[in-house]
Design a protein around this nucleic acid. Sequence first.
DNA 1: AACAGGGGCAACCGCTTGCCG
DNA 2: TCGGCAAGCGGTTGCCCCTGT
Length: 378
Amino acid sequence: MGHHCCSKQMVKRGLWSPEEDEKLVKYITTHGHSCWSAVPKHAGLQRCGKSCRLRWINYLRPDLKRGTFSDHEERTIIDVHRILGNRWAQIAKHLPGRTDNEVKNFWNSCIKKKLIAQGLDPKTHNLLPASRSLLHGGNGANPSSNNPAQFHSNGGAAVVSVATTPFTISSPTKAAAYDTVTVTPPPEMAPTMYDVPNPNGMLMGHDQAAAAAIPGYPYHPDNSGGVLMSFRDQNAGLQTSMDFVNGSSSSSSMDHAAGMPNGNGFSQGMGAAFMDLTAGMWTTAAVDSAMCAGMEVVQPLLPQGLLQGEVVVGRQAVMNGGGAVADKGMDMMDVSSVYGGAGATTFDLELMESCALFCGSGVGGSTGNAMEQLQWDC
DNA sequence: AACAGGGGCAACCGCTTGCCG
DNA sequence: TCGGCAAGCGGTTGCCCCTGT
């Protein structure tokens, strides 16, 4: 059955011959492809326009990289897939020279198997039931010890790491309603640990004096006791800090992502959403759910005293302060591996912005499903 | 050397989306 | 507003090649 665009034509199917490739390349480079349905006719090919388009996009385009995927590309795919799911075209946009088809094939033939071998569900990036039972088989006192959930993509090999990531954004791709766990923060989660220098490139601060003492920390003089959060993009050598009290951000890679409504990259709406969200996360104060519609924050206490916050965008607007993370089938994005550090990927701030923008829209009274919007906007 | 099985990848199929008259 | 068309996109198929027996 041919395509509707060429159903009346006798078209060839199957693999392309070098002669056909040559004809197509010659025509496209000379005339372009303003109308694919007209291309085969003008190029002298017995193919349908759709087939020509596919051949050009997936194989003949001069800007294609081809060849095996690098470790860096693999990490990028895993990171972005964790957020977007099987949206291959979107993922491919983060990999210059790669096509969605190529990414999809690489995922299905390689990455998926690696994740499964590591005990992770390739769809959700969560632990597979078998691994989960192993993980939770003990007393569960130390959530990060030998825990595959702390997997950081690193050259395609699983790294069971000590949790150095202070901040994780989680996105339940197609999660149904899930429970939330509200636990009173333990006394040890005092402001003394609010300043978290992260060797992986991310820093969150609360106490400005301590934050200012950290070399290179983007101390904000107006950040009076508020939460200041810094992203370092070591690939681009850029840095962005966000002052959640003032709902602003400063400098760097935020600015050169397209479509941002203000010069600082983050919109005011987003800043407000994050401000309250983060304030709730750090202070465990009650937060008006309408401010962060569909967002949930949980924060496990990491062994070395770091505080890991998880922003979970889900159906219900619940702010949780403290306690262990309950695995409810959520996808998790390790921001540190995204925004900097040895495992940094090209997955840039644009993704987070687009996610965060929605959070801002929630502030404005959006009634849409937060998670859906998060995903779709990405 | 021959064969079977599996993996990888190019191409196809069909649904969705966007544009235009 | 609606319908037609083209392009975009993700899932699936099928061929080719490699490897193990």
